[in-house]
Amino acid sequence: MFKGIFSNKLDTCGQMHSLEAVMASLIMVGVIVFAVEATSLTPLTSSTANAHIEAQLQTMGQDMLNVLSYTGLSHDSDLKDDVMNWDGIEYVWNGTAYDSRDSNNITLTNSSLAEMFEFIAIPRGIAHNVHFTWVSDDGVTITRPYIYNGDPSDNAVIVSKKVVLSENDIGNASIFMTNTGIPDADNSSGFYNIVNVKMTLWRM
């Protein structure tokens, strides 16, 4: 008699505990699903992806400048050659070549930076600007575009490399100054000026 009474009571308690366990499991699964769905929509994930892309662009841009800055025995670096061969013209990518912004009849040639962009950046859909910066006779920092492809996005990265120019590098300082606007910073020595090559990269 007593055995039957306690058995029914235990069965009822066991069923309640089982039901509670099932409900708790369903609630936990629901919370996990909600958390996963919410995470995939939060700005944090987008920011993390953007940060990864920016890190890749930063590394790629710095590697490009490092390669172009390599100086072989008795030879100037390709980056220095680009600065010395610059004629002061701003070039824009037209889809097939870098043309002068002012005249389509002038195309950028013999430029290692342009060749590097055509080989690496353009096939990957990476927009790019290059500016040359230097200090004028008055101590004012001057910046002029060398290659321009538009206004950078908010996720653009900037890398730079300094190029030291001597009077022997320039040759005719008067013509170089007229074409580029880069002055001789010290007439009393063989030092000419320092040009900072600033590269801006972003995904299109």
Rank of each mutant, 00 (worst) to 15 (best):
M1A: 12
M1N: 13
M1H: 07
K3P: 10
G4E: 15
I5P: 09
F6A: 15
T12S: 14
L19M: 15
L19C: 11
V22C: 09
A24V: 14
A24F: 15
L26C: 14
I27E: 06
M28P: 06
M28Q: 09
V29D: 14
G30M: 13
V33A: 14
F34S: 14
V36R: 13
S40W: 09
T42Y: 10
T42H: 11
S47I: 08
Q56P: 05
L57P: 02
Q58V: 10
T59A: 12
M60P: 03
M60N: 08
Q62H: 08
D63F: 10
M64N: 03
M64D: 00
L65Y: 00
V67G: 03
V67K: 13
V67Q: 11
L68R: 03
S69E: 12
S69M: 03
S69N: 12
Y70A: 13
T71W: 01
T71S: 14
T71Q: 14
T71E: 15
G72H: 11
G72C: 06
G72E: 13
L73C: 09
H75A: 15
L79A: 01
D81W: 00
D82E: 05
D82F: 01
N85K: 10
W86Y: 07
W86L: 01
Y91K: 06
V92Q: 05
V92A: 08
G95F: 04
A97K: 04
D99T: 13
R101Y: 12
R101P: 09
N105V: 10
N105W: 08
I106D: 04
S111C: 03
A114M: 03
I126W: 01
H128C: 12
N129S: 05
V130F: 07
H131V: 13
F132E: 07
T133F: 06
W134S: 06
V135R: 06
V135T: 13
D137A: 10
D137H: 09
D138R: 07
G139Y: 00
V140N: 11
T141Q: 08
T143L: 09
T143M: 12
R144S: 11
R144Q: 09
P145M: 02
Y146G: 00
N149F: 02
D154E: 15
D154W: 03
N155A: 10
A156D: 04
V157K: 02
I158P: 02
S160T: 09
S160L: 02
K162V: 13
V163S: 02
L165H: 01
N168D: 13
N168K: 09
N168P: 05
I170W: 01
I170D: 01
I170Y: 04
G171R: 01
A173G: 04
S174G: 08
I175G: 03
M177Y: 06
N179H: 10
I182D: 00
P183I: 01
D184Y: 08
D184A: 06
A185Y: 00
A185R: 04
D186M: 04
D186C: 06
S188Y: 00
S188W: 00
S189W: 02
F191G: 10
F191D: 14
N193K: 02
I194D: 12
I194Q: 05
I194L: 04
V195E: 04
V197P: 01
V197E: 02
V197L: 03
L201T: 02
W202F: 00
M204H: 07
